[in-house]
Amino acid sequence: MSAPPPVRPTLPTDILARKGGVPLVCLTAYTTPVSRLVDPHCDVVLVGDSLGMVLHGLPSTLGVTMEMMILHGQAVMRGNTSAMCVIDMPFGSYEESPQQAFRNAVRLMAETGAPSVKLEGGQHMAETIAFLTARGVPVMAHIGLTPQSVNTLGGYKVQGRDADRARVIADAQAVSGAGAFAVVLEKVPDGLARDIAGALPIPTIGIGASVACDGQILVVDDMLGLFTDFRPKFVKRYAELGHTADEAIAAYAADVRARVFPAAEHVFPDTLKKSPSK
């Protein structure tokens, strides 16, 4: 009996071809075990620079380094089989020039094996996106609320209301025209996100945007409820693992203090049981 054919990983061209089709399912992952959990269900697995806040306790994504992205990217790729892996370019690794962006994007891809990168920014990053894509680096763009620019945006505010609407539309057109194979729309009003999704020839992936986008992405820790005190409006909790874990850890602590764990079935006897004589 012959072995089944190997699973072909999803590629940027596959994602681009999904425009207007069945919505793309996207989640973040930062470790091998979580990558193995989300891979069978997702089209895209993002190694987001959100790992700085989610895993490392940083106050924002600004302190994330190339080394951190490579380390976690390698871990996620070890658990990845079929979903397309995208790795965020961290703050400071691509803004200086297209040449700087190319060097660091190539490093991320070469050292992790991931087939694509994501960077933030609209019109001002169009030249860089075009430079990368012309040299074989597939780019997922990210506009609207761009967390790496949180200080200049005045916080984690909705983008594209009133006077900002034209800017976000121009950003979307710019990254699409520059060759991005998809674009994340973050914290963009529903109507504007619908308009952009309907107008762009590339897939739009929403986070705090419209259901009309070509796909959706969430931070996996958020949708699993691993944080008990963090509830953004745009996140639907599909589990409350934070509460479950808290209860489990409390029960373990109580058992240890009461000396009921480890019980007899959890320890090793001094001697082996003798086999019954024949």
Rank of each mutant, 00 (worst) to 15 (best):
G136K: 13
E240M: 12
G160D: 05
Y238I: 02
G154Q: 08
N104C: 05
A193H: 06
E111P: 00
Q99D: 05
V106D: 00
V38H: 09
H41A: 04
L145F: 14
T13P: 02
P12N: 11
A239Q: 09
K273R: 14
L11G: 01
K274P: 00
V64T: 03
D195C: 01
T13V: 15
A134I: 06
V47L: 07
T28K: 10
S210D: 02
V175Q: 09
L185P: 03
A170V: 04
L272C: 03
V175K: 11
I169L: 07
G136N: 07
D88F: 09
A3H: 11
A126M: 14
V106L: 06
L37P: 00
L145N: 03
S35T: 08
E111R: 07
R18Q: 14
P5S: 12
G144T: 13
D222S: 04
A180W: 14
P201T: 13
T32D: 04
D229V: 05
I15Y: 10
P115R: 09
T271M: 04
P201I: 06
P40V: 05
G154A: 10
L71S: 02
P115N: 01
E240R: 15
L218C: 04
V106S: 01
A197M: 08
T31R: 15
D14F: 12
K274W: 06
V183G: 04
A193I: 12
G52D: 01
Q74C: 02
R36K: 15
V47T: 01
V54T: 09
V45G: 00
F131H: 13
D195L: 11
G154H: 11
T32H: 10
Q99H: 09
S50G: 03
G191F: 07
R103Y: 09
G122W: 15
A101T: 09
V117H: 03
D222V: 09
T146E: 02
E127K: 12
V34L: 15
G160M: 13
T10W: 07
V54C: 03
G242R: 15
D49T: 08
V235M: 02
M1K: 13
A166S: 04
L119T: 02
A172Y: 09
T10E: 02
K274A: 06
A197T: 13
H56K: 08
P269V: 12
P40I: 06
